[in-house]
Amino acid sequence: MSAISREEVANLARLARIEMSDAELDHLSGEMQVILGAVARVQEVASADVPPTSHPIPVNNVVREDVVIPSLSPTDALSGAPASSEQRFKVPQILGEA
C-alpha cells in the first residue's frame, strides 16, 4: 500500500468536517500509515468471487404502513438545540449552497 500523506489526511478531515491542527495531522498521518498497513490484510482473501456482506442477518422488505404517528412537540424537538428562534433551529450563516 502506498503511503498516506499529510495532505490526504487533511482532505479526509475536510470531508469529515473536523478542524485539525498541524500537529494533529502529523500525528494522525503516522498512525493511519500503521493502521492501514494492518487492515490492508483483508485484500489477501477478498477475491472477486466472494460476494460482499453488508448486513449480518439477511432480511428483505421490512416496511411500515403509511400511517401518521404523532410527532414530537416543537418544544421537545428544539429541546436539545444549541440555539433556537421563531420555533426553528438557529444556526450560523450557511455559506454556499449544496
Partner: peptide
Amino acid sequence: NTKSKMFCGCATEFGAEPNTQTCP
C-alpha cells in the same frame, strides 16, 4: 404525497407551523 414521511411516521402537510412535523 404519502401521509407520512419516508422513514418515520411524521405528517407531510405542506405549510405546517415550523418543526411541528418532526421526530427523532
